[in-house]
Amino acid sequence: PAVSSPPSPVALPPFFMRGSIIQLADGELKRVEDLKTEDFIQSAEISSELKIDSSTVERIDSGQSPNAVVIQFSVGELKAQVCVEVLVEYPFFVFGQGWSSCCPDRTTQLFELSCAKLCVGDVCVSLTLRSLR
């Protein structure tokens, strides 16, 4: 029989909770649920340390625990391969779409954050460090 584990919001980052206040690079404050693709792009443009990149979801596999998934991304023009293991409710920001997770129902339950289903082929916002001079 399936065993459902109780939600453990304390173990999750607090800033995905609906209503959380996010400060953009220009100082503007927005709620997490109101963020747009342009907010990430513009913040990265004026950041001295970070630049924005696109990460395409290539695979989504089961993780080591029942609530975890391993997501393989292809990052940037060089298609660098990056794998991250996250909880199924962990939201990623998809270009032109907004917040998406592997289990949007659980994300909405835990964070009250509206989410789409994260799928192979989705292009997520990611960051790289600017080259140090």
């Binding site: 980052p13 607090p14 800033f15 995905f16 959380s20 206040i21 996010i22 400060q23 953009l24 690079a25 404050l29 997490v32 963020l35 907010d39 990430f40 913040s43 950041s47 970070l50 990149d53 990460s55 991304f73 990052v75 940037g76 023009e77 060089l78 660098a80 990056v82 991250v84 996250v86 962990y90 990623f92 920001f93 916002v125 990611s126 960051l127 790289t128 460090l129 080259s131």
Partner: peptide, 25 residues
């Protein structure tokens, strides 16, 4: 008097879960 509770403010980049490998310009 009750001090208003300060609302936490999170930086925008904390929402992006990983830093991809640095690429040369």
């Amino acid at each position: 008097n009750v001090e208003p509770r300060s609302v936490p403010v999170f930086p925008w980049h904390s929402l992006v879960p990983f830093l991809a490998p640095t690429q040369s310009d």
